[in-house]
Design a protein around this nucleic acid. Structure first.
Lengths: 208, 208, 208, 208
DNA sequence: TATGAATGAGCATTCATTCAT
DNA sequence: GATGAATGAATGCTCATTCAT
């Protein structure tokens, strides 16, 4: 359960690529709906309209399917976020702490709102499998990188020195609070938590 | 998968209590080491030196064993924390933001350091089972309550109004950061993260 | 599963008798509601408010409890029927075929209506255990005996010679038809079946 | 315990069909010999010379194996009976009540003689499982249908109006009496019972 | 007499993976 | 490439019965 062997193959044929794609889509649907453990390879194959054997032709094991789905998932999301970042006026952002804070929280929520079910599953898996944990950590660092690049232009207005650590701590906080809100019965009003979260981040980053 | 039936029975004999204890201890050992799903009832029984049937004499199902272990676990921890809180000089605490912040981080880390493996397992389970999620949420609220009672005396010095939401957000942040440090390969130096975390909490709570 | 060992004991103490009675009553309730196999000795003990050990003090095994309950059950029913037979005017019955037929069907239905759930359970058990089969056969013969004694006075008006065989065949028919009606989704209107049954019995017994 | 999910799969390979057949045959052998509950899926697999997994490749659960065996069983029997009915001279039958009666009893006995052990098991199961009860009821109605089609040509000679109800009641009587004879220690000479049964049916159907 | 803790073989069912076709 | 039949260890859980206290 620790190390997935090298990936199945790189298909060159159009047909092959389609089959592979169908498996991935079926997997995403099923993993999101039922969870990783409750989804058998048989079900994936049936949902994809292929045979079990085919699944194993393209992926070394079930985990590899999940791993690839996750990778694609995050790529897609990051692409979307980078896209929306392009339009932001970083110069003005730099001067307005409130705007930056809002953007941070908004983007983080966006990241988790995209497919919360799938995200939940990944959060679960990272606790039980080192490979997933590693992927998750990697993903976290990409988010941290984004945050840093958002904050960098405003550096002179920030009260923090270690920007990377700050980004990491902020991301962690957002992640956990968003999970509380989205996945578990939030024990407190969502608005209160969101306000507190934004306040915490803002007072942390900016002098007042 | 949703609601465990009422617990097995109330032991009336000395022998009974011992057996129950042995099962609980074996469970804690095994759940921590191998995780909940990788621990079969057969293994628990063997480790405890009793028959499978005995496990089911005392607990309605495997989950109930875990639930009780968790409950005891948190009780113990909270007892310890309340104990150490008794000695704190709240009057002086109120005036010194740094001391309060340090205490918060320290206690939180303590909470997670006690048996990080077991804590990891609980974190995992809350993602897949409502009962565990509920227990976890309950536990979170107890921590929040403690935090509030620590902060209350210093109220006049705090920049936050909604103390409860603040406590919740802080707890979440600590929880996630500590998990990063203790359970996953922290992608950053522990000291940096700890410093950043403390800074965030401090600047959030206190005017400077 | 074949031969129950000799019964536990004959209690002489008042307290003993009460305990025994409580077990029997609990068993009847549970066997009727959940069936023999779905009723564990533990449940019986709990329902009776005694310990499992006590159940085994009074009965050699679970089957013995059921066997005794069944015996009491049938005794009670037969008592009731004999009671109602006393009042019947056999002289006049002898001349009126319709009245006899009606009485037969009525009594049979009464026999099955008393506690249809329990009766179902017995019917089931006789198929899987010789002891229950024997008890059921014995019971059948008692019913046959009753039927014969009802018909005897009318002998001169009857077209059948072998009264006992006739009684047996009639009882069987009634038993099965009543089961169809009471226990399974009768595939036909109850009234139609009852009418047909009565007609069959009447034309069999009496010349017209 | 109520509704079996759709059957496992449609076999597409020769090998597949053979395996399925082997499982069915093993099941029939074992269910007849030891009964449904005493036959474990492991035993079925061993008897069939396949793995347990294979059993579940072809059937959703143990019950489904039994259900299919029963369906085949009754199909086979009905085929045989319809076959033997083809040769009967219905015209002459119509006039001769004795011949019809004899045919009814003969065919009914034939139906139960085929594999009495298996039949016993089915009778048992219908008392404990709605699915089996339904199948049994269905089967009963098919028998009733046959009976009706046998009697129809003789309608003018019959004293009964509600042919269907008559057929149902007759079938029930035959069923129960045959069970008494074949499965339980008949408490009376078989010949006496058979004669009484035939007499009852005859006097019920035909005026004399 | 009464208790109830202890037993452990047994059951139905699942599922990732392999490999002959 | 594609197929899908075959595998079998492993799982959570039940329950009639015994017997030391």
């Amino acid at each position: 359960m620790t190390q997935s062997k090298a990936t199945g193959q790189k298909p060159k044929q159009k047909r092959s690529i389609e089959t592979r794609e169908r498996i991935l889509e079926a997997g995403e649907r099923l993993f999101s709906r039922d969870g990783f453990h409750a989804t058998s390879t048989k079900k994936i194959a049936r949902e994809a309209g292929v045979s079990v054997g085919s699944v194993y032709n393209y992926f070394p094991d079930k985990k590899a399917v999940m791993l690839e789905i996750y990778a694609r998932h995050t790529s897609r999301m990051h692409g979307m976020i980078l896209e929306s970042l392009k339009d932001a006026d970083f110069a003005s952002l730099g001067r307005d702490g409130t705007a930056v804070t809002r953007m941070i929280v908004d983007q983080s929520v966006k990241l988790h709102s995209f497919s919360p079910e799938f995200h939940r599953e990944m959060s679960l898996l990272r606790y039980s499998d080192p490979d997933f944990a590693a992927l998750n950590a990697q993903e976290m660092m990409r988010i941290v990188g984004m945050l840093v690049s958002i904050l960098e232009p405003a550096r002179e207005n920030l009260r923090v020195d270690d920007l990377e650590a700050a980004a990491y701590v902020i991301s962690s906080a957002v992640e956990e609070v968003v999970h509380s809100i989205k996945m578990f019965d939030a024990p407190m009003d969502e608005a209160r938590l969101a306000a507190a979260l934004a306040d915490m981040i803002h007072s942390y980053l900016f002098t007042t």
